[in-house]
């Protein structure tokens, strides 16, 4: 049996248990239709049907005799790729959700309900109640709330729907402002961060923009250009760059996981329970913010230029407080 990589026995069993009641409700259905409905490959459907057709219960005789097994119309299956169940055993309805399955969907719904498109809170609440009732145990306590950038999401979404270009002022990750005109394709979110994928008319290329870096966002009445097939969206939003810089930092061993996004790797040195790690960063513009945001935990040791950038950034921040609070100068 080959049901593709990454599918555990639990997933296969779930598919078998779901397929039986579905086939019961359809007197005659093609393998193709089943595969489209369940969004699995036709081969996986055929494998499952082959297994169901020879399965059953031990029965009175404990010998798995013919009458204790499922049966299908084999000619239809083998000749026409059509499934006709002719004998049923034991089950006739879909299984309930597990506590964790229901929780996963409920948490997903909670996230959706915080988005402008899904403002129908009542409908979502009804749906959550149905899921709770359809679970075999109380759904696990996983809950989700809130999102930022709601107004930008609504503007971009309307533009995607209407097929018009949008314009905005964009502040890039290096701190530079530019006016952009973009064909919006799709809004993507990752946790609290929202991204727009689209065609940038300034760069004449597909680009990803962070919604929280846009200002003066508005839709135009210029229709978007037809999208060519070669502009498929990559799964990965972010790519490393050859111009990345190596920076060595020192921090407590236990704090290393806080820098997981920067792929820290080992580096010699460090004293006491502190270790040194080398990070890849795109530019010091981001590094100074990262390090200052982890005050008292992370210290840059090398290169000297990076240390100086961080020091100046923090010192400039301190200076603002000293300006507004002249009596509390120094430390």
């Amino acid at each position: 049996m080959n049901a593709g990589p990454g599918l555990g026995a639990s997933d296969k069993l779930t598919f078998l248990l779901a397929l039986v009641p579905f086939l019961m409700d359809h007197d005659r259905i093609s393998v193709t239709d089943v595969s489209e409905h369940f969004r699995v490959s036709p081969d996986r459907v055929r494998d499952a049907v082959n297994l169901i057709a020879v399965s059953g219960i031990p029965g009175e005789t404990r010998q798995y005799l013919h009458g204790d097994l499922f049966d299908i119309h084999w000619d239809e299956f083998e000749t026409n790729d059509v499934i006709v169940l002719t004998h049923l055993v034991a089950i006739d309805d879909s299984p309930r959700f597990s506590a964790r399955e229901a929780a996963a969907l409920i948490a997903g719904l909670q996230y959706l309900s915080s988005l402008p498109e899904n403002a129908d809170v009542d409908a979502i609440a009804t749906l959550m109640a149905k899921l709770t009732r359809s679970a075999s145990a109380a759904p696990s306590q996983v809950a989700v709330s809130g999102t930022d950038a709601r107004s930008s999401i609504a503007v971009v979404q309307a533009a995607v729907r209407d097929g018009v270009q949008i314009e905005f002022d964009y502040l890039n990750a290096r701190g530079e402002h530019e006016s952009r005109r973009v064909d919006p394709w799709r809004i993507q979110s990752v946790d609290r961060d929202w991204y727009l994928r689209g065609w940038c008319h300034l760069r004449e290329a597909a680009r990803t923009f962070r919604l929280d870096r846009m200002s003066d966002l508005h839709a135009t009445d210029v229709p978007t250009s037809p999208r060519s097939a070669d502009t498929l969206l990559p799964e990965n939003l972010f790519e490393g760059s050859a111009s990345d810089l190596d920076v060595t930092v020192e921090l407590p061993t236990s704090a290393v996981p806080l820098l997981a996004d920067y792929a820290p790797h080992g580096s010699a040195g460090g004293k006491g329970d502190r270790v040194r790690r080398t990070l890849r960063v795109a530019h010091f513009h981001g590094l100074k913010r990262l390090v200052t945001g982890l005050a008292g935990v992370v210290e840059v040791v090398d290169p000297a230029e990076a240390r100086a950038v961080v020091r100046d950034w923090a010192a400039a921040g301190v200076a603002r407080y000293d300006e507004t609070e002249p009596t509390v100068g120094g430390e």
């Binding site: 369940f38 299984p95 959700f97 399955e101 996230y111 498109e117 729907r161 979110s189």
Partner: peptide, 28 residues
């Protein structure tokens, strides 16, 4: 994995869903 299994169970009911919202891909 768990939400995909829940969807498999839901598909057993044989309901066809409405068209999904376009241009929209929220993820956690």
């Amino acid at each position: 994995a768990e939400s995909q299994r829940a969807m498999t169970k839901l598909h057993a009911l044989g309901i066809d869903s409405s068209d999904p919202v376009l241009g929209y891909s929220p993820s956690l």
